[in-house]
């Protein structure tokens, strides 16, 4: 049926139209195919694709995170795009900080052997007796989460790991997310990024 109609179409054009450029069958099929493809693409987009957000970003849920340390090693970037964040509001300003000192530290000073952080990224400053402020130098931090583990197990849990978006290249598939044992990494829309409670 279809073929017949195409043939008649072809003949008609040859009779009435410009004999130099007849609409041949191949051209006709091409145009038909093009419109078919256009409508499939359009319909598919409208029906299946849920355009919920313009942009999404990778985020760690601190409540699920178990500070296993894979963020430091599994990220496609070196050093990782995951860094430690300090929520000062939740900090107890302890003199003996579980996130700053090694559990077996012999002396409580700023010596490297007493510190938990392998890169010395945490800066400890005295405020008033017996309180100390802990600041994280994000340029030094590699996201290993040792301090986060320390703070979570003996402290308020004011330190947490998070994907830094000015560093993250926004891979289509986050390699840390596929390796995360707690499945704590997910895509969120930009307006939901960075859980600010913690």
């Amino acid at each position: 049926m279809k073929k017949q109609s195409e043939d008649s179409n072809e003949k008609k054009t040859e009779v009435t139209g410009n004999p130099q450029i007849p609409v041949n069958r191949r051209e006709f099929l091409k145009t038909a195919g093009r419109f078919l493809a256009l409508s499939v693409l359009g319909a598919g987009l409208l029906k299946f694709v849920k355009l919920k957000s313009p942009v999404t970003v990778w985020q760690i849920d601190p409540r699920k995170c178990i500070h296993c340390g894979r963020c430091a090693t599994e990220c496609v970037l070196n050093p990782s795009a995951v860094r430690c964040v300090h929520a000062y509001e939740a900090c107890g300003y302890c003199k003996l900080c579980g996130g700053y000192y090694r559990p077996n530290a012999s002396q409580l000073n700023t010596a490297a052997e007493s510190q938990l952080c392998p890169t010395g990224a945490i800066k400890r400053t005295f405020i008033e007796d017996p309180y100390f402020k802990y600041q994280i130098d994000e340029d030094l931090c590699n996201g290993c989460g040792k301090c986060v583990k320390g703070c979570a197990s003996f402290g308020n849990g004011s330190l947490y790991l998070q994907v830094r978006h000015h560093i993250c290249v926004g891979c289509n598939e986050c390699r840390i997310a596929t390796r995360c044992p707690a499945q704590a990494i997910s895509l969120v829309t930009t307006d939901q990024a960075y859980w600010k409670e913690s």
């Binding site: 970003v57 964040v85 300090h86 929520a87 000062y88 509001e89 900090c91 405020i127 008033e128 309180y131 402020k133 600041q135 994000e138 998070q162 830094r164 978006h165 000015h166 930009t190 990024a193 960075y194 600010k196």
Partner: peptide
């Protein structure tokens, strides 16, 4: 704090 210390804002980072 007695010394009037105010804790800094948490650095929530930049979102592009």
């Amino acid at each position: 704090f007695q010394s009037g210390y105010e804790s800094p804002e948490t650095n929530f980072g930049i979102i592009r």
